[in-house]
Design a protein around this nucleic acid. Sequence first.
DNA 1: ACTATTTCTTGTCATAGGGCAAGAAGTTGC
DNA 2: GCAACTTCTTGCCCTATGACAAGAAATAGT
Lengths: 190, 190
Amino acid sequence: MNSLERVYRHPLLSQEDLKKIIGAHQRDTYAKGEFLLREGQIANEYWVMESGLMRAFVHNFDGIDITTNFFTDADVVIEVSSLFQRIPTAENIQALTDCVCWKINFDCFQKLFHTLEGFSEWGRTWMSQSLFECKQRSVSIITNSATQRYLTLLETRPKVVQQAPLKHVASYLGITDTSLSRIRKESAKL
Amino acid sequence: MNSLERVYRHPLLSQEDLKKIIGAHQRDTYAKGEFLLREGQIANEYWVMESGLMRAFVHNFDGIDITTNFFTDADVVIEVSSLFQRIPTAENIQALTDCVCWKINFDCFQKLFHTLEGFSEWGRTWMSQSLFECKQRSVSIITNSATQRYLTLLETRPKVVQQAPLKHVASYLGITDTSLSRIRKESAKL
DNA sequence: ACTATTTCTTGTCATAGGGCAAGAAGTTGC
DNA sequence: GCAACTTCTTGCCCTATGACAAGAAATAGT
């Protein structure tokens, strides 16, 4: 089963619906380092990862980049505000390894969203879930120590820790690469 | 104009649509301290604030409560994952002052969501916006000092700082009440 | 009005993590 | 295989914020 089938699994989507949805996607590949979206652009599509690793990041006022998310297999790679509100994004999305994805553009998405009831339900569920995870992230930054957050990431998304450069993992965790290097050293002892 | 008209303003919603939507809401009041939702329950409605102040909070593993959001006039008070995924929530929503709200239950919402195209667009836009704000919050916790975050909150939501107990503002900012007290003292000098 | 409770302030001390800089290790391109 | 670059580690010192505890101020209940 490919990642599209995994992503669009939903009780209100029939086999036929699924066929339509999956058929609206096109395969695309990105080379390591390539950008799928740059700040200032208006997103006109989103992607479902088939393989590889990507990250999303923003620049803060000092120009420092902060990784806001990582994406691996069967993750939906999307900048929701830009795509749905048709406004320029503040985010960048970049391939950290060579990647294979399925992409769907805004118009196709819209048509499906307003014709298939199950699809709009799916979309809403997906958004709720993202919002939930986003809130959890803030709470985690507030209540857990850097070490705890690192260990959690290591457990829940080992691929990210293994494949992404340390500095990106560090900014995702909200610490400096120096600190992460030390934390990693400490936790290796255990 | 009441808060409902402000909240549901959207280019794809006609006057007639608006009437239907607004008509599906019922006025309700909550006394200071009262809970609208408690962890473990499944949300079956959401609210639009007419007046007053509320907060949402979660308990972390130590039982400490962390305020995740404040709500004032014309804010939509909703626990999206529980309401839309029909699962028990981890959040609590509590009135910090006496409050007046408009509430709408899940069934009415569903009917409107699947019959009015403009309403599902509105909902999606609202969710994108929330997700955007949520991401910003994480970035802010990561990149700004406690003092900067306090000053930003003071500027963007003065009511919250004025009306909410310091400890809730503190946990929202991700610091202890002790630190917030000191920050407030310092910033008063300026 | 009086007590109990909660909220807020302040002091002392401890510590996680940051800033900076040097060098080691690994990667990339030719 | 070498140069250039990026990534990662380590040392030293510093600062923002936390932990704990005592008391002051405000609020709520009777």
